[in-house]
């Protein structure tokens, strides 16, 4: 009787441990990009065997992208506190014509972000477009501001997203970047460990 009871509890526990579906996989596909130090990286190969938390930004965005980036920072701090390692953070710019490695480095530096396990990526527009297309992120130039000196900047209508990618390069869950629940993603990361 006692054994049956224990078996029931074990089965119940496994049933509750919900598995995350595979949304998309990179498979053999890889992309040549550059990081904030202008160093070439092959994505997602350079994060192979790591859990990846990834968001998609443009640095001229003063509101939604900083919210998403700050949420990435909160997740990073929480993982450090819980001593969960083997997680890499990536922020990819979908506005690479403006977001050069130097601009990305300054964007991270001014926010005192810990880049020990966080990489900012940019590259050719065609490559960044291919990445966001594969991961299901949309970014379309919309309104703009023209400065007195004639300089023009565009604002993108874009998917507000943070993604969880498993160590096999498979996207396992999408979250709203600006309003993500840190408890939820940390719990999901634990499921992938």
């Amino acid at each position: 009787m006692k054994l049956r009871h224990y078996l029931f509890v074990i089965i119940l526990f496994w049933g509750c441990k919900e598995k995350l579906p595979v949304i998309e996989k990179f498979g053999e596909t890889s992309y040549r990009l550059v990081d904030q130090n202008n160093k070439e990286v092959i994505f997602p190969d350079f994060v192979k065997d790591k859990i990846v938390i990834m968001n998609y930004i443009f640095t001229n965005c003063p509101d939604i992208c900083p919210l998403s980036t700050n949420n990435m920072r909160l997740i990073q701090e929480r993982l450090k506190k819980e001593k969960i390692d083997n997680v890499q953070f990536i922020s990819l710019s979908f506005d690479p014509e403006f977001d050069t490695p130097e601009v990305l480095r300054k964007f991270a530096g001014i926010r005192n972000l810990d880049l020990s396990n966080w990489t900012f990526l940019t590259g050719d527009k065609s490559t960044t477009n291919s990445v966001i297309k594969q991961v299901g992120v949309l970014a379309v130039p919309s309104d703009s501001t023209v400065f007195k000196n004639g300089r023009k900047i565009y604002y993108y209508v874009h998917t507000d997203r943070i993604q969880l990618i498993d160590p096999e390069g498979r996207i396992r869950k999408n979250y709203k970047g600006s309003t993500i629940n840190v408890d939820e993603i940390v719990s999901d990361i634990k499921k992938l460990q």
């Binding site: 003063p62 509101d63 949309l138 919309s142 309104d143 501001t145 007195k148 874009h158 709203k176």
Partner: peptide, 21 residues
């Protein structure tokens, strides 16, 4: 700053956000 404008972030749909003057 060079300019200061009143802007609004808005929801385009369930997933997408935008910003406009």
């Amino acid at each position: 700053s060079e300019e200061a404008e009143i802007h609004e972030s808005y929801k385009k749909d369930d997933d997408r956000m935008g910003m406009r003057p």
